[in-house]
Simulated scan of single mutants.
Amino acid sequence: MNLKVNGRQVDVSSDIKTVADLLIHLGLETKIVVVERNQDILQKEDHQDTSVFEGDQIEIVTFVGGG
């Protein structure tokens, strides 16, 4: 399946069915992230129930602490 993630075309396995699956695939499941799917910002509790489809545009923002 082909997705656009943070502006880049990414080919992922058809086993990835949800945003949560995608975050696991990208190694971001333990990070604090904000996810936008097709210009809709998702709540964290919706990641498991939000499906991803061929051609979806996903933006993922991670937070980095420091000082």
Rank of each mutant, 00 (worst) to 15 (best):
S51E: 13
T62G: 11
V52P: 00
I16N: 08
V5M: 05
F63D: 07
G66P: 02
H47N: 09
K44V: 07
I58D: 11
T18W: 04
G7W: 04
I16Q: 04
L22Y: 04
L28C: 12
F63E: 08
G55I: 08
V35R: 05
S51F: 10
L3S: 06
V19A: 08
V34F: 00
T50I: 02
N6M: 08
F53I: 09
N6E: 08
Q43D: 09
G67E: 13
E54R: 03
G65S: 15
T30L: 14
D11W: 01
E45P: 01
Q9D: 15
V19I: 14
D56Y: 04
E29T: 05
L22S: 06
G55A: 13
V12C: 07
L42T: 01
K31G: 00
I58E: 08
F63P: 00
S13K: 08
N38R: 01
I16Y: 08
V33N: 11
S51A: 14
I60H: 05
A20F: 07
I41G: 06
N6S: 05
T30N: 15
I24S: 13
T50L: 04
Q9R: 09
D11G: 05
V64E: 10
R37G: 00
N38D: 11
E36Y: 02
V19Y: 03
V52I: 15
G66V: 06
E29M: 09
T30W: 00
I32G: 11
D21S: 10
E45A: 11
T30I: 05
D11Y: 04
V12P: 02
S51W: 01
T18G: 08
L3C: 06
L26F: 15
I41E: 08
G7R: 03
Q48S: 14
Q39G: 00
V12F: 03
F53H: 14
T18L: 05
G65T: 09
D56C: 06
D21R: 02
I32F: 13
K4I: 13
V34L: 12
N38T: 01
V12H: 04
V33P: 02
M1W: 02
T30R: 14
I32R: 15
G27N: 14
T30M: 12
E59I: 04
L3Y: 04
G65N: 11
E29P: 02
H25K: 12
N2G: 01
G27A: 11
I24T: 14
D15E: 15
D56N: 08
V33K: 02
V52R: 01
D11L: 06
I41A: 11
I58N: 07
